[in-house]
């Protein structure tokens, strides 16, 4: 019988333990190992400064050791109750992430105030808005409203770019 996913509510098949179910705890172990490795590279503070307290590396390492122990408990849970099979994310999710990356690149290298309406417009279309003028109007009105409220009321200065250079002079 198909069961709903906790997050998305989409139907899923009940699970049976497969090797890639252990991918999550595996990733956690790699993360813990990486943090411990990085912590070992922190400079050692002279005894006179650190006194009876602990070296800066100790606390992160301690956290990762506890995380590792909890991860073992997670593995036991997974082997006892294999997780339901997750469906691959729909197109809208993948492209939303792509739009976020595109926003960052455009905002960093062109102009944040150009990147924002472009991404809002594309996101409206991607999420199913069929009317071009509605998507365009949403993009322009939202950007203008946010820009002027942040600039005039909150006195936030946005990074300079093609468009903001004209406004700031």
């Amino acid at each position: 019988m198909m069961q709903p996913d906790d997050v998305t509510g989409r139907a899923q098949a009940p699970g049976r333990l497969r090797w890639f179910d252990l991918g999550l705890p595996g990733t956690v172990f790699v993360f813990c190992a990486a943090v411990i490795h990085l912590s070992m590279t922190f400079e050692e503070v002279p005894e006179i400064i650190v006194g009876d307290s602990m070296q800066p590396r100790v606390f992160p390492i301690f956290l990762m050791v506890v995380m590792g122990l909890l991860n073992i408990a997670l593995i036991l849970q997974i082997t006892r109750n294999p997780p339901k099979r997750l469906e691959l994310e729909p197109k809208a999710t993948w492209f939303s992430v792509v739009l976020m990356v595109a926003f960052y690149i455009l905002a960093e290298h062109v102009d944040m105030m150009l990147a924002l309406p472009a991404v809002i417009f594309c996101m409206c279309r991607l999420w199913g808005e069929t009317r071009l003028w509605v998507a365009a109007l949403t993009a322009v009105i939202t950007t203008c409203a946010i820009f002027f409220s942040f600039d005039l009321v909150l006195e936030v200065r946005f990074p300079r770019g093609v468009l903001t250079n004209i406004y700031y002079g």
Partner: peptide
């Protein structure tokens, strides 16, 4: 509509 709301939330 969610296709209007969530792009605005993103902004």
């Amino acid at each position: 509509p969610r296709n209007i709301l969530w792009p605005v939330v993103f902004a």
